[in-house]
Amino acid sequence: MEKRAKQSDTGIEKLNSKDATVIDAHNISKTYNPGGIPIRAIKNIHLHLSKGEFVALVGPSGSGKTTLLNMIGGLDQPDSGSILINNTDITRLSQAKLVKFRLHHIGFVFQSYNLIPVLTAQENAEFIMLLQKIKKFKRNERIDMLFQAVGLSDKKNVRPSQLSGGQQQRVAVLRALASKPQFVLADEPTANLDSEAAFNLLDIMLKLNKEEGMTYIFSTHDQRVIDRVKRVIKLVDGEVVSDKITDIL
């Protein structure tokens, strides 16, 4: 796979193209062994993501999307290969260090039930920044701006149970990128949403990708979502079968 040195709006000042690399997964494999029968979930995958990219991971069920994302996100370890996130090989980090690394460098959006039910939308969005011990005025500034950007300003003090599924996912996206991580990783963030809410979420992700240069990698099954994404990586049986960049818009 050839290296893609794409320039993002925030990465321009860095002349060295290596600095714009966010994810560099090299030859990673993962085999599960449930009940003695080995399942090769990921087979020698190389993956390279530059700052500001917006990437969809697609493929049939069981093709290894979740497994791959978990490894990139530092939630799971590959059996072999290396995963460099901003030049740190996360496969060599201890569990405790990985937790810290995730906190400071990776934003997560899960499929559903992303939010902590006892916290308000604002408190949920602040969660990562609070763990990072970011000062209150800085947090407020950032949260106000983001809630405005996604049109949820009036829902800040509402508990997740009073938000629609789409609104919850939007708050989850805000939480993931509020602390400006290296990239946001999302495993089927739209799977539990109706198509209107799914498009809405995608719009917001794209908007923040443009405005903030936030890098995204997410998996999806939804063809209409796929149609709106520039770079689409397709997995089949744990292997990358295509990695296409289409010019949309």
Partner: peptide
């Protein structure tokens, strides 16, 4: 369990 798992995934340490 799901919720605590998610909190840990996000980067909340075990001790917390």
């Amino acid at each position: 369990r799901y919720e605590t798992g998610m909190m840990m995934a996000l980067g909340m340490g075990k001790y917390k």
